[in-house]
Design a protein around this nucleic acid. Structure first.
Lengths: 193, 193
DNA sequence: CCATTTAGTATCGAGTCGATACATATTGGC
DNA sequence: GCCAATATGTATCGACTCGATACTAAATGG
């Protein structure tokens, strides 16, 4: 259990294997409550997406899947009464997504929450190191693929804090005002500051 | 980019989201070379499994899937000429698996190797912290599920190093001699020392 | 105003995956 | 030795995944 301080054993292979196993567990967890892995990913996404990001297109970018696949997943969720679709008034090609009450009620049954339990058994420094390591890894990988980061306003180059008074922020990309509540959710347009 | 040293922001939610996204990318990578995610997992496993662990049963335990699912995945791989099955002489219920030359030749096309590239862009300390964090997380999660660890002899309580001379080790569980080569592969019976 | 782009749906085929049922082979108690 | 319990693996089903391709319809931009 002692940390190897001097002899870095070039254990990237091991790290890759652990990433693979982690992915496997997440996939397996995705069968909780009679749903499927992709459906859980969509549900989790919609629970966290802001009002500019609750569309099939944004979800497609988040999942890195194709439009067709995501469309099918959303149809299954709609059929199950977990997601509601509505037309976008401004752009009539577009669809707005939101969780129904039933969909939101399902979130506590997300099996990946058990990772939070596992995290709680790690000490704070290790947890923080894991968080930063994952962030760096994801960032490098997403950059290589041209993928979007889907972060918070806090870390976004388009964010203008308190531009119109306390708690009244602004997005310099979309040219709209942002409430504090808006900034607590992830955005498809987010770009690192 | 500055590390938050004093204000630990209880960002476990963020960590969970990153784990989910990582899993998504791995799944997506799993469509390389015309294979499927589960097939890549099996291929990677068989490339790393020792001679006590190259069976459908061990793969089932590794993947955390059901026997039926794994059986189907292996049939697809056999059909594609990437995996060869052979009867186990000692236990005629059992099947031994090995990669064919074609299967082994496919390994360099594994898209998850691109995470190694991403890792190479991180500094050594962060990489080491990520490795240890992932290990701790996986260990906690696997322990909660009763899952096996699938590690190396090096870390196994049944390992008896150099018991019969230099490079001639022994497994105290299976009661068999182990070569250096044996110890370089993962084992279904491994238990943390 | 019309070509291009964008948002999303429809359909196909191979595969996934849990569930259930099944066929054998081994093992343990007696 | 014998037979029940157990272990290893396959067969089949149904809903879903997912990339690929083709499609509809709405917005955009010279």
């Amino acid at each position: 259990m002692v940390s190897t301080q001097y002899c870095l054993p070039m254990n990237d292979d091991e790290t890759l294997a652990m990433i693979g196993r982690l992915a496997r567990i997440v996939t397996h967890d995705g069968h909780a409550a009679g749903l499927k892995p992709a459906q859980w990913e969509a549900l989790r996404y919609l629970a966290r997406a802001n009002r500019f990001s609750n569309t099939p297109g944004a979800l497609t970018a988040y999942l890195g899947a194709t439009k067709g696949t995501v469309s099918q997943t959303l149809m299954a969720l709609e059929r199950a009464g977990l997601v509601r679709k509505s037309a976008d008034a401004a752009d009539r090609r577009s669809v707005r997504l939101e969780l129904t009450a039933a969909g939101a009620a399902l979130l506590p049954q997300d099996e990946t929450l058990r990772f939070a339990e596992a995290l709680s058994r790690m000490d704070a420094a290790q947890r923080e190191a894991l968080n930063e390591g994952l962030a760096a890894l994801l960032k490098a990988r997403l950059a290589a693929d041209g993928g979007r980061t889907f972060g918070l306003c806090r870390d976004c180059r388009h964010f203008r804090r308190d531009m119109e008074g306390a708690g009244r922020h602004r997005c310099a990309l979309l040219h709209v005002p942002l409430s504090d509540e808006d900034t607590a959710r992830i955005c498809v347009e987010q770009e690192a500051a």
